[in-house]
Amino acid sequence: MKDFKEKLSGRIFFVLALSSISVLALITVFILIKGTPLIAEVGLKDFIFGMTWAPGRGEFGIFPMIAGSVSVTFGAAVIGVPIGICCSIFLAEFAPAWLSKIFRPVIQLLAGIPSVVYGFWGMIFVVPLIRDYLGGPGLSILAGSIILAIMILPTVISISEVSILALPRQYKEGALALGMTHWQAIYSVVLPSAKSGIVASVVLGIGRAVGETMAVIMVLGNAVALPESILDPVRTLTTNIGIEMGYAEGAHEQALFATGIVLFVVIMIINGLAQYITRDKNKGRR
């Protein structure tokens, strides 16, 4: 009887696991089937490097969107990564226990806020601020970068902090016993030793920024054009799909799926990179 139960529950879990994997596989296949014909027709080079996105005229070049995604993500990293790493150092090395006890759940909470809320906040707070003080329409790369920077903070902070805290206590003690100050120990021992974890946190944060859709739709302005300054509006790969999928048909729809393939590949590369970096760490050191 017990044996039977064991076997049954094993089967059930197997089926559940299998079904979630197959759903993933199905989605992937579906996107590929829908998108590849258009890429084949337009040509990969023209699709990726084409400057004009005019579905009505059958022109499908996504380069402006790629530029949009890259610039907004880069901006988010420039703003968010230093802040995130500093926060994680503070939490792991300086904050008294009671403070980190408050801080950690708050950061987790930050990760749980729906992105539309971030977008909304950006729309009514960040965008006007930029418009009034820096000029331009306000809906801009800068606004998107700020919002995304805040959104990637939880990822960067928590993963970096964990990787700092996971270091053997002796690393830091060895440094202090050599007569280093706390700061010297941090930048010459703690940070280099936690490097792979910190880099992984940045890569995962970037992955999150690339994939984010809702929040950026609301603050980017979504113009399909190569930006000239950080105050210009742009459209990203994700927002392109989010905005047009509702009414797209035929080749247009296919083109959006093809955009999805590009995104898919980019995210795969980023996540693969993160995996590679963290695995490297476990192999390199005992």
Binding site: G174, A175, L176, L178, G179
Partner: peptide, 28 residues
């Protein structure tokens, strides 16, 4: 920091700094 240089310590687990042998030695 002066005290810890006068009174050096070796731990039960080796704690090399994440750098070259020479830089480990030259750090102090």
């Amino acid at each position: 920091t002066q005290l810890r240089r006068r009174v050096g310590m070796v731990f039960d687990v080796p704690t090399p700094l994440p750098m070259s042998i020479f830089d480990n030695m030259a750090y102090g």
